[in-house]
Design a protein around this nucleic acid. Sequence first.
RNA 1: GCCGACGUAGCUCAACGGUAGAGCAGCUGAUUUGUAAUCAGCAGGUUGGGGGUUCGAUUCCCUUCGUCGGCUCCA
Length: 635
Amino acid sequence: MSIKVILDNGEEAVYPEGTTCMDLYREKTSENSDLIAVLVDGKECDLNLPLIERSAVSFVDFDSPRGAAVYRHSASHILAHAVKRLYPSAKMGIGPAIENGFYYDFEFEKPISADDLPAVEAEMKKIIKERKPIRRREMSRAEAEEIFRAKNEHYKLELIAGLPEDVVISCYEQDEFIDLCAGPHLNHTGMVKAFKLTGLAGAYWRGDEHNTMLQRIYGTAFPSKERLEHYLSMLEEAKKRDHRKLGRELELFTLHDEGPGFPFLHNNGMVIWQELADFWRREHRLAGYEEIKTPLILNRSLWEQSGHWDHYRENMYFTKIDEQDFIVKPMNCPGAMLVYGSKMHSYRDLPRRIAEMGIVHRHELSGTLHGLMRVRTFTQDDAHIFMLPGQIKAEVAGIIGLMDHFYRIFGFDYRVELSTRPEKAMGSIEMWDKATNILEQVLKDKEIAFKINEGDGAFYGPKIDFHLEDCLGRSWQCGTIQLDFQMPEKFDLTYIGEDGAKHRPVVIHRVVYGSMERFFALLIEHYGGAFPAWLAPVQATVIPVTERSHTYAGQIIKRLKEEGLRVTVDERNEKVGYKIREAQLKKIPYMLVVGDREAENGEVAIRHREKGDLGSGNLDGFISDLKKEITEKTI
RNA sequence: GCCGACGUAGCUCAACGGUAGAGCAGCUGAUUUGUAAUCAGCAGGUUGGGGGUUCGAUUCCCUUCGUCGGCUCCA
């Protein structure tokens, strides 16, 4: 008997009955050693299972996410193997492949340090060189328990206990090393061509802070040395663009021991901040928003009413005024609710779009603070939209349009995610379904691709999140649109309907930048500090060649300032090359070199920070070009 | 918060039990300079704070503050 399978090139192939994925895989890898795994009907298959009639079989290499995951997962086993050889008493946790590499968690008798990693790497290299076959073994639950009990691997026993009844339990073996693992894996250890251990960190068992802290070893693996090097140089590039480093060098902001998580913005940072805010105000006015400002500190009773006192207390800062408890606001919504509730509304007034650049304070754990990305005070570009239930769709569509407009300006690609009802949710299931459907419908109508995050919504309503992708491929959640049915209830907000009766409005919370601080940090890294002209703290600097040109330079500066441009002049007693170097390091978009020649012809020699020397031209031409670049927000 | 590492001049780093040193930046002077660093000189630090061990601490120990890398894209 024989069976037919469909190969990825669409052809049918005939094999004897009982042929397994492994057989096929062996056959294919002998032709192409880059192949990593077999997919049957689109899923990673258990290599030992016989193929069934008309299975669709395809092969993946490292360049598919699945292939890379298999490859790195095998690397993580090699890591664990090496660790067990060097530290036989170490207990194994879990060791999955992650986005850019892999890790493995261990509990060591005595904690190891980063200095121990080279020895582990060396042992891994040995294992790779040994080209140990990696074998799958399926077994009964009892047998698996027996194996890991004998080895005293209590974390593995815990994992086995947690496996569903009906699942096939499997282990992967290479030489004396065995690990509980669903697989699949590479054929033999020698297939891992290039790897590096990249870090050592603490990690709670199963990510739960109540559990033991294990030691996690991070690593990455690639099919060639070149690709590993390339990845490592990407990390270097990311380091160069680190907003904390650039923030100091370009005098954008500083952080001080006196205010952990409370950033100080310097003049250069403020210029960019104001441009971002001005742009935001303009666009929001055009989109029909009003703007408010609510107090930083408000009475505790308000926070009890909003539910923050019950749900958010450990993140809030408190103070006392005249013997009464006050709270430094962690969110802007309660204030906005008071503004809405301060007058009667007709259905004709809605929607009311109320925006606020609101400064909030949140007590984040000290270990999570990170430059401007993760702080304890930040400015949300918040807005609350109060509307009739029938207006939700149009409002959500409007916000999506606004976000798209913003993100394009900065040159960001983005991904959209829709989060649905979490387990601990308020409100009826019908209401949730209806709201979620509306959000989904808007996304579909706008033909926006999105991913659904089941159960990831806020407790008060479903939401749409926008994840921006920066130039290094990292993603950051910025914009969010959240429907809220709870707040209007808690604050007894109403509007008078056509029927003359009181009705409940619906509220949307939304942010575009998210946190101004974090968006700023993201921009610093995205542009590597070289801000487009509309944002640059200094848009042009004038460089006189000698003292003779100072008067002429003065005239140029005066003119540029009158045109509203941000300019400086470098009148120091230095050579042109020196001044240019300095301006380049400050990433100033334009340098205007003026010497005797320029003064004579009434021109300026224009140099662009990336394009270099652009030759001489008249000042008016330069001004109009630069102004155009600024108004068009050219990237 | 927890685990680990780190904290020396404005910045980047050295010295690692015998009273701290370099480069860059800064200041002064000379040089009048044409598209990424002119030369010379000067100044700069209770080595994060507190405590301990020692004849002696930047170095060893404790403590505190801060910074950095992490803290389930589930065997």
